[in-house]
Amino acid sequence: MNKRKLKDKIMLGVISLLAIISAIPILMIIINIYAEGLKYVNLSFLINFPPPPIGGKVGGIGPALVGSLILMSLALVIGGCIGFFTGLYLSEFSHTRLAQYAQLFLQIMVEFPTIIIGLFAYSILVAPLKRFNAFAGAFALSIVIIPYIALNVREAYKSIPHSLKEAAFSLGISHSKVYLKVLLSTARRGVLTALLIGMAKAAGETAPLLFTILGATFLYFEGLDQPINAIPLLIYNFASSPYERWHQVAWGASAVLLSIILAIFIISRLVIKEVRM
């Protein structure tokens, strides 16, 4: 009896230790990024242009921040709409062959290397126009986030109890109103989470932007058909440069990007709490 209890305790201890170890990298990343980067972040850092490689002050990441926000919003509008309706279809028409194939495709798409999606966007939206442009970036990000949003929206609708669906349909309400008015409010927690996950994904992706937006470091937004910059791309470019000044900007930009992601994550948790009551 005692021996078994001891065994249990050791087992529990080992599992707890492993759980703690798995959380260490994320904590270290957060601590490291904020320790190195937070000292450069202030209001002017968020607004100003980046500094020249040598000399001058740290400057800021204004154009990249604006670019990221534009790309995120655009990707959320395009990918959000397509992803939402795809997810709805997957859930409510899951018996159709189309839905079965679509789901398989989306599951593959989740695992797709995003650099390939970037190349694809390059080949159809950059090469023909002979110019890197913001829309190509947003298009690539949309493709990246569609499967995340669709599969999560599908889960959200699937989790609605059948009895509530029956209740809604028994009222003689049309299909579209049942799905978009009655059941959407039931599933809104899951749908919002799906959109927020998509947003976070769009905020952090670098690879789809490499071949699409160029990273116009010293330009504010000038139109969807023009080059633009985004924070992840700026970090990539500046961190791999040989200049100390730009490394500092990259650290600061990393702290800003991490904050954006954490903020989205916290909002999505709060949303869940609020709706659960």
Binding site: L164, E166, A167, G172
Partner: peptide, 26 residues
Amino acid sequence: GMVFQIPNPFPHLSVYDNVALGPKLN
């Protein structure tokens, strides 16, 4: 009008909205 085995009002809607929903959407 249909009434089900497990009482299934829309849990997130108010008492009023549960009754008003059908007439409103129709």
